[in-house]
């Protein structure tokens, strides 16, 4: 049991003896100046702890997004132009299945198949300088998230393409004599990108949350593992910092989404 004196000292050190608004202002002020306090468990600055793992999470999210877009957009377009044919049904059911995976289930299955059974990849991600090692450490985690991303992007692309393909300007392009593949690429896909960007931007936030599951399965450092650790150990200063960083990430992702949308849509003026 802590003595009354040491508790008072701790309260003073943490500034808990002051009024709530004062504490809040203090927190905002120091958060803005980059001082997020020290972890109550390790004693190291919260900023340092977060900045150490942040690149891992960004890397994982970025690679899985690329994988998802690289697979999802062509599949979605393919399904849409073959609407109600066998291809379309197959893609729809497959993407629905992909979307049904909880992130940890896809991770567990990939780990079991490719790391434990086939032994193509290490069970635990290690990080060293070489490209080969990087590839080995990122592939399975990125695939497990990328699979879900791909399924999602496929569905969004398909429905956006179906919508766009029935637009009047697609008919106009055909009336000009533009060949069908060019109509699909130049006229339809460019317009379909707009809803895709919006929806994927929102989904990215969810996926950053889901990466916690991937990190646990592959025992990979990242924000998710950090926050779970902080929750288990009731490391409140760390949690505070984590909430700030997640909020910043959300704001940043929104900004990227807006910029991408602005680039794709001439009707939106970038300021």
């Amino acid at each position: 049991m802590a003595s009354e004196e040491s508790l008072t000292a701790l309260r003073q050190r943490l500034g808990l003896d002051r009024s709530l608004p004062a504490q809040y202002l203090d927190f905002v002020g120091s958060a803005l100046s980059g001082d997020w306090g020290e972890s109550m468990v390790t004693g190291r600055p919260v900023v340092t702890e977060i900045m150490t793992v942040l690149p891992w999470t960004i890397e994982l999210t970025a690679v899985s997004l690329l994988l998802g877009a690289a697979a999802g957009i062509p599949l979605g377009v393919w399904a849409a132009v073959n609407r109600n044919r066998a291809v379309d049904y197959a893609v729809r059911v497959a993407s629905l299945l992909g979307l049904s995976f909880p992130a940890f289930v896809s991770a567990v299955i990939l780990l079991l198949a490719f790391a434990i059974q086939l032994r193509w990849f290490p069970v635990i991600s290690a990080r060293s300088g070489s490209v080969g090692a990087w590839f080995q450490s990122i592939t399975l985690p990125a695939l497990s998230l990328g699979l879900i991303m791909a399924a999602y992007i496929t569905r969004v692309t398909r429905s956006a393409m179906l919508e766009v393909l029935s637009e009047d300007y697609v008919r106009t392009a055909r009336a000009k004599g533009v060949r069908w593949p060019v109509v699909v690429r130049r006229h339809a896909l460019r317009n379909a990108l707009l809803p895709i960007i919006t929806v994927v931007g929102l989904f990215l936030g969810i996926q950053i949350g889901n990466s916690v599951l991937t990190e646990i399965v592959f025992n990979r450092p990242g924000l998710g593992k950090l926050i779970v650790g902080a929750l288990n150990q009731r490391d409140y200063t760390m949690l505070q910092g984590m909430m700030v960083i997640y909020t910043l990430i959300v704001v940043f992702v929104n900004m990227l989404t807006d910029i991408a949308y602005g680039l794709a849509d001439p009707r939106v003026k970038l300021q």
């Binding site: 637009e167 009047d168 008919r171 106009t172 392009a173 130049r186 460019r190 317009n191 001439p266 009707r267």
Partner: peptide, 13 residues
């Protein structure tokens, strides 16, 4: 066509 508002592609000049 009838609908000039929707018959032009909005993302091309």
């Amino acid at each position: 066509f009838q609908e000039p508002m929707t018959s032009l592609n909005p993302v091309l000049t």
